[in-house]
């Protein structure tokens, strides 16, 4: 199946999805991001990359999406796929020898994302930092990149009409009451005291609520929850 390039599609805000990848790259000091998603509900494959156009067209012309070991590995993986572990494979050498000629680094990793309906996303990040610097960045940003990958995947999947309805966020009572207290101006610590739960419990529910609402920040999540009438404006 030929992948559908969604790079020029608008994101939620002002720019395109490819520009959104540019912003994520800038935030974490990355060179490029390549996203590939499989929507099992309407049976489509999506791609969004911010690679240079020359490499992008060469990649698709050669049909590398069919042999790219980073994609094949990530599509069935729970853990992330470190490219360092793939370097000795023939398929990796073939794809990445070419990549190097286009000035693309072979340092990176692919984060697999699984959605609730069997949909899958592969979020590859490329860096040209030294190995040492890369390991440091990786440690520092891995959790944040996991979240970015899931948010990006959910955003692309929501574009499908059938998914739009199914991906309506469902908050638990706990998530809802925590958001409600945050909307009332309470800190995470306060909310923990009010509900007699640990701050870490507040945090884990809040993080889940943010991601269900497709929000990067808590204020954004509160705004969306009010907009969707999941909590009351105070």
């Amino acid at each position: 199946m030929k992948p559908l390039d969604l790079g020029a599609e608008p994101d939620d805000g002002s720019g395109t999805l490819a520009e959104l990848l540019d912003r994520i790259c800038a935030r974490y000091g990355l060179d490029y991001i390549a996203y590939a998603g499989i929507n099992t509900v309407d049976d489509s494959i999506h791609g969004v990359v911010n690679y240079p156009d020359a490499w992008k067209s060469h990649y698709v012309e050669q049909g590398y999406q069919l042999i790219d070991p980073t994609l094949i590995a990530a599509s069935r993986s729970v853990g992330l796929v470190e490219w360092g572990r793939l370097r000795d494979f023939d398929s990796f050498r073939r794809v990445f020898r070419d990549a190097a000629e286009f000035g693309i680094s072979t340092t990176g990793l692919t984060i697999p994302v699984r959605g609730p309906f069997g949909d899958k996303g592969m979020f590859s990040v490329v860096s040209s930092h030294t190995e040492e610097e890369w390991q440091r960045l990786r440690r520092e940003f891995l959790s944040a990149l996991q979240t970015e990958a899931t948010l990006f995947h959910d955003r692309v999947m929501r574009e499908g009409r059938s998914m739009k309805i199914m991906l309506q966020p469902t908050l638990s009572e706990r998530e809802r009451e925590i958001l409600q207290w945050i909307a009332a101006g309470k800190s995470q610590f306060d909310v923990g005291v009010i509900l007699s739960i640990s701050t870490r419990t507040v945090e884990v529910h809040l993080r889940s609520a943010r991601e269900k609402l497709g929000a990067m920040t808590t204020p954004q999540a509160v705004a969306r929850a009010i907009g969707m009438r999941l909590i009351y404006p105070i």
């Binding site: 729970v78 994302v113 609730p116 959790s143 996991q146 979240t147 990958a149 899931t150 948010l151 469902t170 908050l171 638990s172 009572e173 706990r174 998530e175 884990v204 529910h205 993080r207 889940s208 991601e211 269900k212």
Partner: peptide, 14 residues
Amino acid sequence: ILQGEAPLRSATLW
């Protein structure tokens, strides 16, 4: 176990 509530869903929660 969840008593009919929605489950937690987070990229950093396994």
